[in-house]
Design a protein around this nucleic acid. Structure first.
Lengths: 209, 209
DNA sequence: TCGCCGATATATCGGGCCGATAGATTGAGC
DNA sequence: GCTCAATCTATCGGCCCGATATATCGGCGA
């Protein structure tokens, strides 16, 4: 799921690895402490698959955002050569998302994976998908949580005189799950309201009062 | 952390891999969906380190729980040989925890890892450790959650006009974290009450009214 | 009685994730 | 100029997981 995170962030702006990690931390907060040990291999993977591409190599000169297509000529190249000779380049590889990457992002958003982490990430990138997709994801999450709730409830009911700590854990889990379900319900309602609002804007016929 | 789960379960009863997985699912519920791809390698690892040992090999005969020390003699061996010749043995490898394993379990319980999963597991096995250790773990968890709460709050405050979905995510995270902190607080209070109660039982002097 | 099937049971493999670590540049402060 | 912390890319070993292979077991219908 780290690929989803990378693509979702890169869709907003071209960034190099280190910045990417900082943005991830800021946007997803405690939901994803992506380590460099995952980030760089993932970037390589995505590049190999053509989902992202190196947009520029920032060597410290002012000429950032220089496309890599074609050969560098003139002053810039000379400047870079000088720099490289004296101190060596910084070589910050700035990545950008490609058309393939956009498709991949959509695929990953539609992926059935539905755990805490995955769902949180998808929600964080909801702005990149349309309303039907959003509703599908929300409904799926609600179904998952309801199933989990049922499971935990059965487990609690099955053994009454069990260990008090296990019991406390399960009861707390039940409560948390119920609250999460409510929350998802509110998100769904909000989404449906907006959908209705959009509908009214487009075809105001049939509106009563 | 799968080792903690295995040792914690095995401390209660000797089990073979398949049973182990079922017990794990029952006790830890949705907190750990340990797969065989982790379970069997982990068992091997633990056996190599001497933390668990094969207590018996259940080949389908009625004589379960037969220790492996010494050679099998008499009827049981004959029966086993007959069975093996005709249909082949079932070879359920029943594992048990060793003295080394008990030490390892205590070490893993004291481990500073403090994420959702790790803490949940430890709590599920609280019955295996003394009250000071429990309180230490609870306090540590509370500190972690408080830190996370602070972090999320700062992130929310830092950008006001941000994406509504990211905002919803963060606000929900804040709420959940606060509830978790309250919960931990209640567990700590309960633990301290019991500690005080124990103290009164032992030295009833100084009790005022 | 035979065959089929789902549950039981052990095990491995490829691939991904993570913590630790390495190696290097850069800017700020002194 | 010197040190130090932050920036930046990258790899390694070890662990975890989903998929998969293999084989037995108990029950149920033909």
């Amino acid at each position: 799921m780290i690929e989803l995170a990378i693509l979702g962030i890169l869709k907003e702006a071209d960034l190099h690895g280190y910045e990417l990690k900082k943005h991830l931390r800021k946007v997803l907060g405690p939901l994803s402490n992506v380590s460099f040990g995952s980030l760089y291999p993932a970037l390589k993977r995505l590049e190999r698959h053509g989902a992202v591409a190196v947009v520029a190599i920032d060597d410290g000169s002012e000429r950032a955002s220089m496309p890599m297509t074609g050969s560098l000529t003139g002053e810039a190249a000379a400047f870079r050569a000088r720099r490289r000779a004296t101190r060596g380049p910084r070589n910050k590889k700035v990545y950008g998302i490609t058309a393939v990457g956009e498709v991949r992002l959509a695929e990953l958003m539609a992926d059935p994976a539905d755990d805490e982490r995955s769902f949180g990430m998808k929600l964080a990138f909801f702005r990149w998908c349309d309303r039907p997709t959003r509703l599908t994801l929300l409904e799926r999450r609600r179904a998952t949580l309801l199933q989990r709730l049922e499971e935990t409830r059965r487990a609690v009911a099955a053994r009454e005189g069990d260990d008090p700590y296990v019991r406390a854990l399960m009861e707390h889990d039940t409560e948390s799950t119920m609250r999460d379900i409510d929350w998802i319900g509110r998100l769904i309602a909000s989404e449906q309201e907006q959908a209705a609002s959009d509908g009214r804007d487009k075809e105001p016929t049939g509106g009563h009062s």
